[in-house]
Design a binder for these strands. Structure first.
Lengths: 193, 193, 193, 193
DNA sequence: GGATAATCGAGACGGTACGTCGAGTCTTTCC
DNA sequence: GGAAAGACTCGACGTACCGTCTCGATTATCC
């Protein structure tokens, strides 16, 4: 019958983490600073979270953070849909704060594989599912070879995006087009040009 | 007439860094610990290196560390060469210590983009160059379409490998085959089945 | 109509304080520990006592703690009575737990003068009164000079005992005899040798 | 061949401790506050001192603190000398800061007997020695009985003073006179009035 | 006999200080 | 002048208690 956990404090901490991430990067985040920024005592943080990485995880997993809501187009043209997704994602990653967030995600994944898996599930899975579904429909429509592996394609897209974010390489239209072209050629049922 | 820098101390530090990386991971590496382990004073480290990340860079860039010497096959069969490379790389990444090293590399890249670029140049460029050269020869031989973009292919291979290492996903033959198949289909000059 | 204060809880706390004092010393006593030891909530302690020192005071003032009941002899021989008292007190202070208690008393007095005064009243006054009464009777009997100051004598006895406890000096018979001799010589009405 | 300990830092800390004692009392002294006040890092304090009490000890043992230099008169009249000493000591203890210091001394002694013994040696021993020497000369001169115990007298004086400081009782002339009279009567060789 | 009001336990909360660790800098002696 | 040793300041770590604040559950009384 003790006083219940303060949802207020919890949200403050998560919000402070999100702000700090976009600001100075994951490494620069300090439990002490987080507590101060959130107007919460250190003890409260230590009581509920075992590590900085876990706070990051919870903050990202839960927040309405930008990037999770990138449009997943579903038009008649597979290639156009893929290009469209890359365009949106590329624009998203052109903003410094978002690159910082993505980098923090990668850094924490490189450090804490388990948490990394959870985060990857949260952020990559929707995209993978979308690609798989999108390609599957193209297969039904006969636009894509039946023996193509939708998962392999999805992986390529995610891997490329992740790698671009890691290196800070802009996800330009040329690069995206080159990938989409390569993939489309590999899977389209249609003939040769 | 001043006393020259001690190459001895330098090598001790780099070696200690390599040992520590394979041991406890990049985050756990400490300048203080490094100095103790290398039998060198902290001052000597601070005199010659501006940051932990740079030591890591130098250690990796210079050391005969495993992974840099993965075979770059150049047989008559492009697909076989690619599969062969994936097999070697996959085996390499199946050993814990190597995954740790790769993760350290990714972590430091996510934290320090500039150094990350240098490291990427050192480790990814040889592979990229190899793929590009290999694909170019296949184009000369007429096995690959002339308008295929060798760089796009190289990027895919590196990105996939990096992403697998980041997530700790084993680079299985299936996954590799799926990718190689996809790519080969996309670029081969030959007809359709 | 409200629920009355729980005498039960009160006694638990005081008892816990007495136990803790004899155990780890006053400084090591913690409100939190006290609460846990007494099976009482912190709030209950804070509701009824303003400070740790006050709990100590109440615990000592109220408890049947050893030392308060040292015999106050009233025989025909003043010197023998004094010696007897010193013997009892000395034996009492030869036990570690009692020295610890005495030290706690001194420590809290040094820290909180007001409470110290109350505690001193409780513990020293009975002894002072006894000495004064005992000496007064000796004066009536003509064994002690009429112009002797009983209070000065009482003070000496108490001060010496307190000082011995503070320093952990055993209150030996020699030391006691030396003091009693000195005092008796100073006050006895009888002649000189 | 490392850098030697900074005598500067050491003195700053001891001085800060002396200031703090006279200010807020021993309990209120904080290592953190001490460090700040002394312009020294916490680490430096923890490197050289094992506890707050030990710093107190070193500060008092070493400093030219007031009280250690109370005059030890050596005139022709023993009683006058004793009265004179009490007068000086009493005046000294009438100043708040000095009572605070004395209380801190007592508190730390009650808590850490070993250190307390050292402190007592430093502060009480000179007085004891003086009383013993003074009484001894009076014995040589025949003013004091040969079988009087100078140490017992010295103890009385110190114990009384300590007890007065502990309780915050002013060491008035009346009280001092009562004690001196009692003692003098007990030891003087001369006859009766 | 039910309502009521202060009690109790539990323990979360914002704080302050603890004692430790490592980061970088500085100072000394030796080579 | 380079290098080992290690003291220095600084800032964060994770922990322990402080004194305050809800909670639900538990008693007395008083209507």
């Amino acid at each position: 019958m003790p006083r219940p956990r303060s949802e207020n404090a919890r949200q403050s901490v998560l919000a402070a983490m999100r702000r700090a991430l976009a600001g100075d990067g994951y490494d620069a985040v300090t439990i002490e600073g987080l507590a101060a920024e959130a107007g919460v005592s250190k003890q409260t943080i230590y009581r509920w979270w075992p590590s900085k990485a876990v706070i990051l995880g919870e903050a990202l997993l839960e927040g309405d953070l930008p990037g999770a809501d990138v449009a997943l187009p579903f038009s008649d043209d597979l290639a156009a849909d893929l290009r469209s997704w890359f365009a949106t994602a590329g624009e998203h990653l052109s903003r410094t704060e978002n690159v910082e967030l993505a980098r923090a995600l990668i850094a924490v994944t490189a450090t804490d594989p388990e948490l990394g898996a959870a985060l990857n599930r949260r952020f990559a899975d929707p995209i993978v599912s979308w690609v798989v579904a999108r390609v599957a429909r193209a297969q039904e429509e006969g636009a894509v070879r039946a023996d193509a592996d939708p998962t392999a394609i999805a992986d390529q897209i995610v891997a490329t995006t992740s790698y671009a974010a890691l290196l800070g390489r802009p996800l330009t239209a040329e690069r995206a087009d080159a990938l989409v072209d390569l993939v489309m050629r590999g899977i389209s049922a249609a003939s040769r040009d």
